[in-house]
């Protein structure tokens, strides 16, 4: 069954087509990579799934239910979590607080629970703290121990990326959207994270969509690759078939003889 199904979707910013008549689907348990040259509309694609951008036309179905007209928080509540291309942590909150706040939509305690310190409140606090630590320990010892109560701003770049993934995991999603998870990491770190992405599926049962520029990562993790260019899907299939597709090569390298339309810059 298709977990996420996107039908004939377009997003327009004042006459500029960021996405055009896009069809896309993800099956449960799949890892799909979305690649494409800069400005191909990849981040817009994520923004649109997570409800931060409203599509101009088309339909998004998640487990058979439409995601249109939902707030980002409601999308997350339905089981889709994401990370950001330019890591956006709550820098002045502690590492533990970062993963605790991400469980907001899975918890229910309101003002009175906190004021009266009810049993339910206390057990919920303990539960989300434990789950938070569990999520953090997925990345080894880097984010736990004495780190738990340090502000996120002291973390190194790679650890910030890891914490961002942990934070997305803490929302207890079924579909995880990772926006360039290894950008800025060295080869060793990126290889390690690639392995972790595989474990995210096998151990945690997440279905994953990744935007990535690093082709070795794409090759290693993806079941299927979708190539976007100028807001349109130009190819999809296994890594090998896509990598050899002339259209894809053209999108990345340009045509031998310059086409007039190819100069059109799509900026986002």
């Amino acid at each position: 069954m298709n977990m996420l199904q996107i039908l004939d979707l377009s997003v327009t910013f004042g006459g500029l087509h960021a996405l055009r008549n896009l069809d896309f689907h993800v099956e449960e348990g799949e890892i799909v990579s979305v690649i494409g040259p800069n400005g191909a509309g990849k981040t817009t694609f994520f923004n649109m799934i997570s409800g931060m951008v409203t599509p101009t036309s088309g339909e998004i179905l998640f487990e058979g239910e439409s995601l249109l007209n939902l707030d980002p928080s409601q999308v997350t509540e339905r089981g889709i979590a994401r990370t950001f291309q330019n890591v956006r942590l709550f820098a002045n909150m502690t590492i533990l607080e970062n993963v605790m706040v991400a469980q907001h939509c899975r918890t229910h305690q309101k003002v009175f629970g906190a004021l009266l310190q009810t049993k339910a409140f206390k057990s919920e606090e303990i539960a989300i703290r434990e789950y938070g630590e569990e999520v953090l320990s997925f990345f080894g010892s880097r984010l736990i121990g004495y780190r738990l109560n340090q502000p996120a701003s002291v973390l190194s770049y790679a650890n910030r990326r890891r914490l961002e993934i942990a934070r997305a995991m803490a929302t207890r999603p079924r579909l995880l959207l990772l926006d360039e998870p290894v950008a800025g990491m060295n080869p060793r770190e990126s290889a390690e994270l690639t392995a972790l992405i595989g474990r995210l599926r096998s151990e945690w049962g997440f279905t994953i969509v990744i935007i990535e520029h690093d082709m070795s990562v794409v090759r290693d993790v993806s079941d299927r690759v979708v190539v976007l260019d100028h807001g349109e899907t130009i190819a999809q299939g296994s890594y090998d078939s896509v990598a050899n597709d002339p259209k894809v090569v053209e999108a990345y390298l340009g045509r031998q003889v310059q086409d007039k339309n190819a100069d059109e810059e799509t900026s986002s």
């Binding site: 409800g51 980002p72 709550f90 907001h104 939509c105 906190a114 989300i128």
Partner: peptide
């Protein structure tokens, strides 16, 4: 009490970055 509760953390998250807070499931 509120500062150290689910609500308080959500407030701080909103103060830090409202868009991200919303994307992380906080009903801003």
């Amino acid at each position: 009490r509120l500062e150290h509760s689910r609500l308080g953390r959500a407030w701080m998250a909103i103060r830090e970055d409202e868009d991200v807070a919303e994307a992380m499931g906080v009903n801003t």
